[in-house]
Design a protein around this nucleic acid. Sequence first.
DNA 1: GGCTTTCAGTGACTGTGGTCACTATTACAA
DNA 2: TTGTAATAGTGACCACAGTCACTGAAAGCC
Lengths: 207, 207
Amino acid sequence: MNLNTVKEHLPYLEDDLIKEILKTSDKVNIPKNTVILKKGEYVKVLPIPLSGYIKVLHQQEIKDLLLYYIQEGESCIMSFSAGLENGKSKVMAIAGEDTTAIIISIENVKLWLKKYPSINTLFYKLYNQRYQELLTTINDIVFLKLDERVYEYLRNKLNVSKTNSLKLKHREIAEDLGSSREVITRVLKKLEIENKIDVKSGIIKIL
Amino acid sequence: MNLNTVKEHLPYLEDDLIKEILKTSDKVNIPKNTVILKKGEYVKVLPIPLSGYIKVLHQQEIKDLLLYYIQEGESCIMSFSAGLENGKSKVMAIAGEDTTAIIISIENVKLWLKKYPSINTLFYKLYNQRYQELLTTINDIVFLKLDERVYEYLRNKLNVSKTNSLKLKHREIAEDLGSSREVITRVLKKLEIENKIDVKSGIIKIL
DNA sequence: GGCTTTCAGTGACTGTGGTCACTATTACAA
DNA sequence: TTGTAATAGTGACCACAGTCACTGAAAGCC
């Protein structure tokens, strides 16, 4: 892994900092569906995906709810603040597909915050982005009906996975949206009849 | 307004910074229900309440939805990031009661970020707090039934207003929760029957 | 006092989406 | 190929909460 590869994903950071990140951090492969962080765990590291993406879920006893995706060059900034205060995570993070990521220790981030103030700018940017995404999530939940929510979910997922079709189990969609399988089946059928999506042998396309 | 008064509310900041805040920022009185920031407006100042509180709402065409309160010594950190990037606000801020606040210009904050790195720590703390509150809000919306949501809303409101009873119109509750008046009437009656609250001539107490 | 406006209370009705119970289909391994 | 598990599809049912159309009660004002 060289400087330019990382720079491509993290254009906001200065070279010295990237060098230091490379020196002290590991690059790891995370298979799809690996749990990276559980609710209640102490946050000790910060993963930054270079390929693939990470799903961040709100975790309740019974149901989960997808909050947002962490994509290339981003980071779960929210667990970072938890990390800074030695706090426990309130969310769960799972690899959405096979993902390669840089793993940075919170301790190092603390050092870099002092040495490289530019990192603050990046963090504020990321905070802002996450906040926007959370607002969108709230908006969808409160104001959209389930069929619209499913549609938005599919569009978003297509965007994040950089493909033009999705192979998803109804079960998965239901879990991400905090709904139930049968209902998703119904909704998908409805969307198909309305010519908003196309489903052929389990592969969903948006029209 | 002297250094100690402010220090009391903002214990994380160093004296020099507080002095500079005092020198360059105004203290203003904001009457209840004054709109401080609308959705879509550019964020130019950062209000920090010294007494009273500010309600932050998600604003949709028809309905609003209460996101959280900004209390003494806190700040709407989320509009701050919007401010940093010259962005527009995604939320609406209203004085929840008669409020006194320090008004800091974003331009000054930008300067101070470089001069006083300690402000970053404070901001991360606040970011984290807002994030937690948003998560709680999402949680309540998705997983709680309306009666439980109303109950949590009342408890929270009591906390924020530092009183032990609330004089609220059903209308107001409905607006904050994105529901409708009649439904709130029904729910309050139910909560009363269940001995969770007590309502006497429009004044609500929690039991 | 009466008059008007605002707020609260109530019953009837409805749509959405969650649950249950079951069948049909597909995928895959022995 | 057949058996088994996983996934999808479907109809019946129901609870929650939103809407409508009112009536009743309080509050404010001349």
